[in-house]
Design a protein around this nucleic acid. Sequence first.
DNA 1: CCCGGAAAACCTGTATGACAGGTTTGTATC
DNA 2: GATACAAACCTGTCATACAGGTTTTCCGGG
Lengths: 239, 239
Amino acid sequence: MQDSRDTGDEPSPGLVSTAIQAITQHIRAEGLAPGDLLPSEAAMTRQLNVSRTVVREAFRSLSAMRLIDMSAGRRATVAKLDTGAMSMVIEHGITTQQISVQQVYDVRRTIEMRTVALAALRRTDAEAAAIASFARLMRENFKHPEIVMEHDIAFHEAIAGASHNPVFSLIVTAFSGVTRRTWVIGWRTRSTDEDQLKMIKGHEDIAEAILKGDPRLAAEHMAQHFDKSVKALLDAGIA
Amino acid sequence: MQDSRDTGDEPSPGLVSTAIQAITQHIRAEGLAPGDLLPSEAAMTRQLNVSRTVVREAFRSLSAMRLIDMSAGRRATVAKLDTGAMSMVIEHGITTQQISVQQVYDVRRTIEMRTVALAALRRTDAEAAAIASFARLMRENFKHPEIVMEHDIAFHEAIAGASHNPVFSLIVTAFSGVTRRTWVIGWRTRSTDEDQLKMIKGHEDIAEAILKGDPRLAAEHMAQHFDKSVKALLDAGIA
DNA sequence: CCCGGAAAACCTGTATGACAGGTTTGTATC
DNA sequence: GATACAAACCTGTCATACAGGTTTTCCGGG
């Protein structure tokens, strides 16, 4: 049936890729914002003159990247910025050993020295309080590694958020998965309560510098924090 | 048919999401490396006890994120690290106005001040030569903006490569799409030949610092380069 | 024994039709 | 005008079919 005279008969990158492009193109052309409705699969099927199979795989691909939201019965909508795809790429790189944990930490260090400085400059009072409170929760639960870890991750994400640059948030959050898989290893190398509390103290120092609005100091504490973390990882034999 | 007693009948995240997880899980469990073969769709269909439709949408989603490579007749293989998904996320953020070009440039500046320093420390001679040659090609073609732009982008990607940390390459490359869409605007604000050549000179300074192996100097030149670029964009009224 | 080539087996790409739910819309009744 | 019900629409999943592309197998000739 499909006579494909429609779009001018492209080379061959596959009908699905074409459909994906058509959809993203539609978002751009119509200037859609998060939450806005996309065409139904049936409509897309007619417009592109391909089977529903193809259109569906295109929608599903965009959904997997979290560029659109899908749910049964409802039409797809444009999605809010989400870290889903980035996390998967990073995880894929790690599990296939194309990137090392240490390399991720180097990137994190680079980025978070900046986010923490920006946070010190641009944080709202509420953000500063939230950051400080995550540090406090780490101390209060320091007997429960899993809980400490989650507050640690939330701490770093909160700082990224306080930088008021969503791209930083995106990247930092994308690394959280890796952190979850290596955090405990680093924690174990800090064998004594004293060592562990010292690490938590590092977080409190960062929070305090943000509260005081001192970007230099905040960046310095963050750098030290990462240097110690990387050292802990290296001591544990993480490549 | 499918009795779904299989995996224990999860809540409801959808069969496709489950299939995606099963595939990535397979990669992890088998310790697959780039190029290794994945199970065929038919095999996956049997293993998960779902229709080929579901398995196919899962494969296609991973393919869209460039975590796997697919092509007709052949089974899917594990993919090399690729920036595809990240680029799409960033582009999506830009087109839906969830992130601004300026925010992207702030992130680039942060990251590239680091990549350039690392490049100065870790570059091979071949890498230093390649970087310098991109700068030279910019000068030689400075009457043809499109060509200058492509060499500019290649220049920055080469520096990221010379940092020898693929995560940096990944991120820098992911931003190239945005650059392609805004570069010309910045170029136009440098109206005279002199201004344009000055901007190219900035690249040559960076290349030289990398060649000399001076990370401080390299980072400084890079910072200046970005400051001027952002200023050019702001002059042009880019939010 | 090796080599070349053709057939078979396998695999993905795409299309079609069907049906089970979920959601929205419109309508008719109170 | 409000409410409840039905119709229309939409996505999720399944089954089947067939057109190519790719790998494997196997057989015949040297």
